[in-house]
């Protein structure tokens, strides 16, 4: 019994210490912003590897999610004779929830895991130590560009996912199932509010981008510098990101739409 309490206490302290380290790490990254503004090339290189290389995955996933939404939505809505509302249903689901959330989950699998593995391997091969000894701060030089690239990329990718999803919904709803395209677009235009829906969706994707990239770079930096340590850190990065995205989505949804 005492051992169980000891174990719980030890693990709790360990988790709190890690959380503390992660917060100091984030502050250190944020302090690297002025340096990054002076050297935009570092950010652009990371925008390419974190953002641009994720475009294909996000586009294809968005297309299929939109198509499935239209199929499922049509089945339900046609039961009430409301199939003309299909456009607004697809768009609202994507803008408010599925766009930011699914993009963040895919982003953590594609870009987040790559960031953790890359940084973990740099640590294991003493590249980060080497940089420190060259008087180059690895957090500002390596982590900060990756973190801000994730922060910028996520809203753009979520926007792409949503737009492609709507097009996928249009192909299935209007093209395949015969919904009238007039009400499909006009209802969408009338019901999707810029502040309530688009801006809130944007805020969500920004928060998810920050959380996912923060977890990814921190897990890499905090990894045990061995092959097994890097592998475990990569797994943790994706798992923690999924929990953090889904948990913060609930909180944000409650704050934004829970009146």
């Amino acid at each position: 019994m005492l051992n169980t309490f000891q174990y719980l206490g030890r693990e709790t302290l360990k988790s709190l210490r890690k959380l503390g380290r992660a917060n100091f790490f984030l502050l250190h990254i944020l302090s690297g912003l002025p340096q990054l503004v002076q050297r935009p090339r570092l950010l652009i290189a990371q925008l390419y590897s974190v953002g641009v290389l994720s475009v294909l995955l996000i586009t294809i996933s968005g297309l299929f999610v939109g198509m499935v939404l239209a199929l499922q939505g049509y089945n339900v809505l046609s039961g009430f004779g409301a199939e003309e509302s299909l456009g607004v249903m697809v768009a609202a689901s994507l803008v408010r929830e599925l766009g930011p959330v699914v993009t963040a989950l895919l982003f953590s699998g594609r870009a987040g895991s790559a960031l953790t593995a890359e940084i973990g391997l740099m640590k294991a091969t003493e590249q980060l130590s080497g940089m420190e000894m060259m008087a180059v701060d690895p957090i500002k030089r390596i982590m900060a560009p990756r973190f801000f690239a994730g922060l910028v990329s996520m809203p753009l990718l979520a926007g792409l996912f949503t737009a492609v999803g709507v097009i996928g919904g249009y192909f299935v709803g209007v093209g395949l199932l015969g919904v009238d395209q007039g009400p499909f677009w006009s209802q969408m235009q009338a019901k999707i509010d810029f502040c309530d829906d688009t801006v809130n969706g944007f805020i969500k994707s920004l928060v998810f981008g920050a959380v996912v990239t923060w977890i990814a770079v921190f897990e890499g930096y905090d990894a045990v510098p061995t092959a097994e340590g890097v592998s475990r850190a990569t797994t943790r990065s994706v798992v923690y990101s999924a929990f953090a995205v889904l948990g913060s989505d609930f909180l944000l949804t409650a704050l934004m739409f829970g009146d």
Partner: peptide
Amino acid sequence: RKRMGMLFQSGALLTDLSVYENVAFP
């Protein structure tokens, strides 16, 4: 540290940069 050089056992070269860029890095 700018006045200290250190040679790591593994070399610790930046693997995404060429030999030239590694030496130019500092």
